[in-house]
Simulated scan of single mutants.
Amino acid sequence: MRKRQLLASKNRQARFQVELEHSLAMLLRSISHDLRTPLATIMGASSMLADSELTLSSEEIREQAANIYRQSSLLSEHFDKVMELSRVQQPQHTLARTELDVADVVSAAISRRAQLLTNQALQIHLNSHARCMADSTLLEIALANMLENAVRHGAAPVTVSFNLDNGDYLLRVSNAVASHNTAQRDSGTGLGTAICKAVMQLHTGQFSLHSSDNQTMLAQLRWPATTDIVEQNVG
């Protein structure tokens, strides 16, 4: 029995490593693709402003400065995602599961995306005593990415809910699918999804994202509910 358990553990670690390598490859592709456009825009706009032979109106100067600011903000978002994925994928990271107040996790995730979520309509459906066992930082990172995806690709309001289901924790983010015209541009190709998947793999859980009849978007974190918490080394 002990040998079977060790073999199963090694198999899980091998699968996990493959997933991490896949996420890293996707990350590198995303950086190459997603950084090219904002960098080109910044270079073009700053070149115009620095060109002494060009005479620009006050309105044109403001427009190019605004362009630089927008694209710089986009670059900042990209790098935030890179740092989050790096945090999740630290080779020697030890999963520190503790008992958490789910309301605190939700609040921290919203703060992490404060600029994006400040004026968004959010509906939080939590039991007053909703608690779970998880790594607080990683769960916060995953939820922040779920909220960002919902806002960028869906319509208000965005609903956050938490409950227990057959011995599992379920943390969900849902909203209506936005029309093509109102959906915002994603700030990173697949990075948010990769982060959520990696976080759930560390918790021996699953992340899912789907839409029903093109009307409702649902992102879900599902991981085992247990009080038998042991530090889990995933390196």
Rank of each mutant, 00 (worst) to 15 (best):
A176K: 01
L116C: 03
A65W: 11
T41M: 10
L7P: 03
S187G: 09
G154N: 01
A14S: 13
A219N: 03
L191A: 03
S161L: 04
M146F: 03
S30R: 02
M200H: 06
D168P: 01
G154L: 00
V88R: 00
R172N: 07
L116N: 03
Q17Y: 12
E59A: 15
I68Q: 02
N145Y: 04
T226I: 01
Q89S: 12
E21I: 14
E19S: 14
Q206P: 00
N233L: 10
T118K: 11
I68L: 05
A121M: 06
W223C: 01
L116Y: 05
G44D: 13
L171D: 04
L171C: 04
L202S: 07
N11D: 10
P224K: 05
R185F: 08
I124E: 05
S72P: 06
T55R: 13
T118H: 10
R36K: 13
L39H: 07
P224F: 05
L191V: 09
V102M: 00
R12Q: 12
L85W: 02
T118L: 10
L202G: 11
R131G: 01
S23G: 08
L6N: 11
S86K: 10
D165T: 09
A155S: 10
W223M: 00
K10E: 15
L147M: 06
A121Y: 01
S161N: 06
E63Y: 12
Q5S: 09
V105R: 04
T189S: 10
L126I: 02
G192D: 01
D168W: 14
V151S: 06
L85N: 01
I31T: 07
R131S: 11
L95H: 00
V82E: 07
I68P: 04
L35T: 15
